[in-house]
Write a protein that binds this DNA or RNA. Structure first.
Length: 413
DNA sequence: TCTGGGGTCCTAGGACCC
DNA sequence: TCTGGGGTCCTAGGACCC
């Protein structure tokens, strides 16, 4: 029998903001952007939640619900820094730790009784340590499966600890809405409701084959989850077995939809640069590139191409992306969003054979030099896109306004 | 309500091969 | 030629998570 913790930071982004601006405490705070911007709520304080504001809600809607709320852009670097602090505390507690996202983690604390006492005691100790190191609150769920531990931490919020005793899983889960099960979203909830399945106990009452017939693999997983099991899927993996990313992507939603080819292509160049940079940071080369296009009516297409050889070079990514764009963009149609996505890492990683191509080698050197400049002087110090734009357009164009991560000044060390 | 950005996993169809 | 059965790769779309 195993014992898992799921630790979840309370209103994480908002709480970090409060550390730097204590006057925000207790007030309705919304992290995500200005109230009149295109965008959604990343996090809302408990005071804001009282007005019905919640994460993923459009900022404009949040503003209508709670006009007096304080809207802030947020500081991702700070959240990452605090996430690292939490991670350090957890690793000092037990070696089997897995950060599941920036603000939550799973711990396998099986066999730590001699060290920390029974699980509830251990959880309170861990809670104190996190508090002492970060001045932030968290909630901890304890159970014999990761999934139940996650649901527990949710029920324990805010700033609480909750344990489900082994054998009591079905009794605990039974009265909960099916929506509380991780993996059941809006659509699955609706489909389950259509079959008269509203509570987890309704789910537990149906047999596996019935659920599989209606929901395929998802149904099979649901049957297990209704019993409180980690069977199959995401929960059924070793804690701490970290593997690198499977895909890397960047996308940008324009402040105003645009059909200006120059602006669109400049944006694609910038996105390819960002993706290329991340590839090189991870030491990866991508075999497949994918373009994402969203029009004004929110209709969205993706178009992918697997290249003859994998690459991590901005210019080669851009060449592919530009072909996909020209082939698939309904010319003249205003675009809301562009995205560049790469995947399919090359197995051998090395690409010695490419060195015979002098063009490729030149770009590799230029890219390495640009990376170095950005390391030293900041991301805006140099842009390959600028030189590329000269190649493909008669006039050079300004970098489009409002691109993420764009800074006016460098930051010399 | 007027809908971000970065991910993972699943499904389904078609090409292609044996 | 009137038509099998896998397996694998690729592409497109969508649900879901934070």
């Amino acid at each position: 029998m195993k014992t898992f913790f799921h630790l979840d930071m309370d209103a994480f982004f908002v709480s970090v903001e409060e550390l730097f601006a204590p006057e925000l405490k207790g007030k309705p705070v919304v992290v995500g952007g200005r109230p009149d911007e295109r965008g959604v709520v990343s996090a809302a304080s408990y005071a804001a939640r009282k007005f019905g504001v919640h994460s993923a809600m459009p900022l404009r809607t949040a503003h209508k619900l709670c006009p007096q709320a304080i809207f802030v852009e947020g500081h991702m670097e700070r959240y990452r820094e605090y996430s690292h602090k939490v991670h350090e505390v957890l690793c000092g507690f037990t070696p089997l730790v897995e950060m599941a996202s920036i603000d939550e983690a799973y711990l396998d604390i099986t066999g730590t009784e001699r060290l920390y006492g029974p699980p509830l005691r251990a959880a309170h100790l861990l809670h104190e340590r996190v508090q002492a190191a970060t001045k932030l609150n968290c909630s901890i769920g304890i159970a014999a499966s990761r999934m139940v531990a996650k649901i527990c931490s949710d029920q324990a919020k805010p700033n609480g600890v909750l344990m489900v005793m082994p054998g009591r899983e079905a009794a605990f889960l039974g009265p909960l809405d099916v929506r509380r099960i991780p993996g059941v979203g809006k659509v699955s909830e609706k489909n389950l409701h259509a079959l008269g399945i509203r509570k987890v106990r309704d789910l537990a009452a149906r047999d596996e084959t019935f659920l599989e017939e209606h929901f395929g693999k998802l149904g099979l997983a649901l049957a297990g989850k209704a019993q409180g099991l980690d069977a199959g899927g995401w929960f059924d993996t070793e804690i701490g077995a970290e593997d690198g990313p499977k895909s890397i992507s960047h996308e940008h939603t324009f402040t105003e939809d645009t059909a200006d080819v120059a602006q669109l292509e400049a944006t694609l160049a910038k996105l390819c640069e960002m993706v290329g940079r991340r590839l090189r940071e991870h030491g990866l080369t991508a075999g497949t590139v994918q373009l994402k296009l969203r029009y004004t009516d929110f209709s969205t297409i993706t178009r992918a191409r697997t290249m003859e050889r994998a690459t991590a070079l901005d210019t080669e990514l851009l060449d592919e992306i530009r072909v996909l764009f020209r082939r698939n963009w309904k010319a003249g149609a205003a675009v809301r969003l562009l995205g560049v996505h790469v995947s399919g890492w090359s197995e051998e990683g090395t690409q010695m054979d490419l060195l015979d191509d002098p063009r490729h080698e030149r770009w590799q050197r230029a890219t390495a030099a640009a990376d170095l400049m950005r390391d030293r002087f900041g991301d805006s110090a140099v842009s390959l896109a600028a030189s590329l734009r000269g190649k493909f357009h008669e006039r050079a164009h300004e970098t489009p306004p409002g691109l993420p991560g764009k800074k006016k000044t460098g930051r010399p060390k």
